[in-house]
Amino acid sequence: MTVPALLIENLHKSFRGLIATNDVTMRIEPGERRLLIGPNGAGKTTLFNQISGDLLPGAGRIELFGTDVTTLPPHRRAHMGLARTYQILTLFPRETLLRNVELALLGLRPGRWNMVRPLARDRALVQEAAVALTRVGLGGLADRPVAALSYGEKRRLEIALALAQNPRLLLLDEPLAGLSTEERETVRKVIADIPRTTTVVLIEHDMDIALDLADTVTLLQFGIVIVDGTRDSVIADPRTREVYLGH
């Protein structure tokens, strides 16, 4: 058996008695495209927060590429190849798009501690940041401040920050939220073009697009894994119908 990209075992998390993650166990193989679905409040984002280290689980363990990271701080996990986006836009609003991506690139480089060299002079970094922006179709806006972007463009920048790091495991939290049909197609293409060297876990409510991107699907409700399997088996499962249609 290969080493999984992400292994979650018996994960528990509760807030003041409210259970958000209840005995979740999951195994995601390298290169897999996994879609997390479930009604609002099912605990999907809370699960992401525990994988990324923003929240510490109450019990259970998390392994990234075979290494136990359960108690590691977020920045250490990032250095192991984990990247994520946020459902609520989490950009650097005062900076330009280029600076935003530069901060993402710096995160994994020892050069981030350089206190002497002007960052603007780092040609290689500027170049690489520009490439990352082009990848999401924002190449022409590199010098604009984030505040001048449309909502759809901000969503794409949100993804660009994570993609720029060439992560081995990418967590995308509702990348299509609030986008127009046209913008959805742009972002769908960006996600579809991610190379298979990157494992992708996706939270998304737009089933038409999301199911198309996914190999496997996990259905969560009340913090519990209800169904877990290949896309078609989960769609066909009567429990899926029950959760979504309430029969």
């Binding site: 920045h75 946020y86 650097f92 900076e95 206190m115």
Partner: peptide
């Protein structure tokens, strides 16, 4: 510098900075 820009990043968006 790279450090100074990162410092301003931690001012504006500490959570994202950690994730990066």
């Amino acid at each position: 510098s790279a450090y100074g820009v990162s410092l301003q990043g931690t001012r504006d968006q500490p959570r994202r900075m950690a994730a990066l």
